[in-house]
Design a protein around this nucleic acid. Structure first.
Lengths: 186, 186, 186, 186
DNA sequence: ATTTAACCGAGACGGTACGTCCCGTCTTTAC
DNA sequence: GTAAAGACGGGACGTACCGTCTCGGTTAAAT
């Protein structure tokens, strides 16, 4: 038996309109712009409503991370092939901004509010996960796996996040080859 | 013949007091705390004075970068030894916060004000420079150098900046060995 | 069908508290004290709120003029008697500060912001109006009326505004008598 | 025997330049604009220098009043004629701004800083003086004199100061005639 | 059809920080 | 000793958001 009255929670309209605009804002103007004020100005949804459903900045970041589409793992049997595929996937996502912008925003947000640092760590973890999975499936053991993932992915992240230059896709592929060779030797 | 009147620029007292506090603030509370208001509260130097000499946030970042002591290059003849030395140096600086905090702050600042992105790039460039120099001295050519530096340094930066974990010093040393081996083969 | 949302305009509380204090300030400390800052200090109403509802100094003067109670016209049939009554009324109001202080404040305000000069003129006009009315009712024609009003009232205003001395009530009554006599002769 | 060294006091240049600009400022922008800052901006004379010689706002008003040229008394023997002359003189000075603007400024200044009220009173007293003198010379006794001066001059001041309208010169002359007639009757 | 609980918009309100402007005092330098 | 240039502390200004709240009107389920 349920209580009478209107069910709780925001209207679907409101949710989509606001979160869409939020993502847009986050990527174009950075984490600082992600305020109820700005969202009201952009969407027309009233300030009160925004506060009602996403009381803290953290709530926005969580909602956005939840929304962000992580494409399903694609696994063939070949280690080298799978790693190359993952590299291309990551490079594309870094190039097309969503991921790069998100990272910048998360670093900035955590810098302003340390309590969101876990979101940043989790997000980065999710980016690394496919590589870890692939290597684990291939039977590479933990410590070597850590090294390999770091060697492949870190340069890409540094390029996108700190140096504002196109991700060095070719270099990453080379690193994959070296990694696979070393793993096979072992 | 010079103009009459008091020479321009802040008193030495003011400069040191403010910049010291600024660095302290930056490292303990992050980039957002680096405001005239906070500096006034912490140092007792009046808000007007702060605004007079460092009108924009960028002015602070520039002053701090200028102040930050970059240790002199130490070069023996041995490539492997030199690289290991540089790795230890960088790891120490990342562990002791100054560099890690600075990086976070610069990313956050650029997120709020894109015109400071060049400061960030320059700062990261300065971090990479010793490695580049060492490899160049050893006769490694440009493209291979880029790869090597990225492989060695990027994981360290990612650990410090994105994952909040102690820099993987051991792994970096391993990478150095592999790099040197590969370079020698070539 | 009305717009949704809370009705605009200050709460009744706010209005009365602020305007009361504003009048008090104006009369005790002069026009310069009539600032949002001071009103906040005196009333406890926050600075933001004051600025929200009375953004410019002019807004305060207007609100105060609107509030100021202009006593209802009292008209018997006798010209001399009515003029004497009006003189006493004006002298009382000048002596009890409200009007005198207001005049000083309006002159000072117009000196800082010429766009408030119309408020000053209107206010002075309102002070003269009862005399004009009385004389018009008695059938005195325009030009003579101007002269009479000026002769009776001006010295009172000058005493209050420029010479800081108690209004010369007796002299004003004498002037009324002379004026009436001259009018009757005509 | 004089002390060695440069004589004290401002250079003549400085004095004239600053005071000229001060009068200009006072009349065009009102008493509020009469600050060392503005004078520096307008004259090029340095802020320090201005503070040295006129430490308080009051010093400026005093210096300006001292400078203001009060034309010498012109006295024939005829009461009526002399009064008419004085009326014309005053009306001209009110019309040509210096006096009117000065009065406005003095009222505003006294409103901000009551300690300058005596300057205002003195200045107004100086305006009335010629009329008092003329009447005293003609043997009119004190109380009647007060009435007469008030009746003649007050309307002019009110027009200029409160109503921003051209001084009613004709009416003033009429008042002079009536006054003279009444005095003669007595 | 009525409840009834929730949504949503508009805005008041106290509060904090911002960046600017000016004040008055002072210190340093040149003449 | 005058003058210029400018540092410095201090205070008010007007603006912009923030987060909380209080009003009104609307909507959608459960009775």
């Amino acid at each position: 038996m349920t209580r009478p009255g209107r069910p709780a929670g925001p209207t679907d309209d409101t949710t989509t309109v606001v979160l869409t605009a939020a993502l847009e804002l986050l990527l174009t103007e950075g984490a600082v712009a992600l305020t109820p004020q700005r969202l009201h100005a952009v969407t027309g949804v009233s300030r009160s409503t925004v506060y009602r459903h996403w009381p803290t900045p953290r709530d926005f970041l969580e909602a956005l991370i939840a929304v962000a589409p992580l494409p399903p793992r694609t696994s063939s049997g070949d280690l080298a092939r799978d790693l190359h595929t993952e590299v291309d996937l990551l490079c594309n996502r870094l190039r097309d901004k969503p991921v790069g912008g998100f990272l910048q925003a998360l670093v900035a947000a955590a810098s302003a509010d340390p309590s969101t640092a876990d979101l940043r760590r989790r997000y980065v973890g999710d980016l690394l996960a496919p590589f870890h999975d692939t290597l684990r499936t291939a039977g590479v053991k933990a410590s070597a796996r850590e090294d390999a993932v770091a060697a492949i992915v870190s340069p890409l992240l540094v390029d996108a996040l700190l140096l504002d230059r196109p991700t060095a896709r070719a270099r990453a592929h080379r690193t994959v080859d070296e990694t696979v060779a070393r793993v096979v030797r072992a």
